Amino acid sequence: MKPKVYITRKVPAEIVTKIEDYCQVRMWDEADIPVPRAVLEEEIKDVEGLFCLLTENIDRELLGKAEQLKVISNMAVGYNNVDIKAAKEKGITVTNTPGVLTETTADLTFALLMAASRRLIESSDYLRSGNWKTWSPMQLTGQDIYGATLGIIGMGRIGASLAKRARGFDMDILYYNRSRKYDLEEELNLTFTEMDSLLKQSDFICIMTPYTPETKNLIGSRELSLMKNTAILINTARGGIVNEEALFHALKKGEIWAAGLDVFEQEPVSLDHPLLSLPNVVTLPHIGSASIKTRMKMADLAADNLLLVLQNQSPKHVVV
């Protein structure tokens, strides 16, 4: 008998077909609405495979209802939505999809940097609202990118790809990481520095580190106070890495110049969130990997990981 699989969000038909060749598939069919918790609790009871997204909270309570589950295939690089310890205790394999979204996320990060520094969204809104009556010397002026200093916190795959893009803008690149990357320092002309020094020197600070207990609120009031008042903070990693209340006050008081955010601590973000009220914040709905080609690669890799485990083979990317 084919193993049973539950897919928590509507994915492209070719991905479903690929899984159906080996499995019995049930799928939540609402494309833009997360599967309700009650539905997921019922569906997980008899499946051997779970194909899920970051939007699903796969916690200890939910895993306690899983009687047959062998694999959780997360269609994401991150996996903080899964209780890894609980999964390990139950002998459940957890997989993710790193690598395939590196370049796309680096593209988006640099685009967000440019949009925040040159006030692109604000300028577009200014024109569309009918406020553009004339040209004036300092109207909607922003910060230069070419030749500026970029500080990257977290020099993983995406951080390195971002640095390659920054080289084309002749930027000086500082980075902070738990361990030094000597090969990348030589290849990309990077300078390793402690985080406080990076914050003080950089014109742009890009957060590229994973979300862990150690990085929760990594950027708070103290760190923001170290930055230049012309500095721009970009976060395309995870929302909880930045203390959002502290960021709001720093932006409101002019302690830093602007921010570009693709992620929030609670997603979807509420429309009354204070950061959304500020003109010097560019906000996006977590679209770092949102190109058609990349999302298809992520779904395909998640399907491969799922099927390999169910066929008693090693998945391509295993978390635990």
Rank of each mutant, 00 (worst) to 15 (best):
A302P: 00
T109Q: 11
T283E: 02
L150K: 14
L113H: 02
F264K: 15
E20R: 15
V242Y: 01
N81C: 05
E267N: 03
A148S: 14
D172E: 12
W132F: 06
A31G: 05
L275K: 11
E194C: 15
K297A: 06
V82T: 06
P137V: 10
V11P: 01
H286Y: 07
K45N: 10
M1A: 14
A111S: 15
R26T: 14
G168C: 10
T294R: 13
I153Q: 13
F264P: 00
A31Y: 09
W28S: 04
E255S: 12
M114C: 06
L218W: 03
P98F: 04
I256S: 05
T283N: 13
I121F: 08
M227Q: 06
W257C: 13
Q201I: 08
A86L: 07
I234M: 11
A231G: 05
I207T: 04
D144T: 15
Q139C: 07
L190Q: 11
G151W: 07
Q143P: 07
Q68N: 13
R167F: 00
T230R: 11
L127F: 12
T230G: 02
V242R: 11
D107Q: 07
L190R: 15
E187H: 13
R178N: 13
T55G: 02
K65Q: 15
E194M: 12
G78D: 02
K216T: 14
D196F: 05
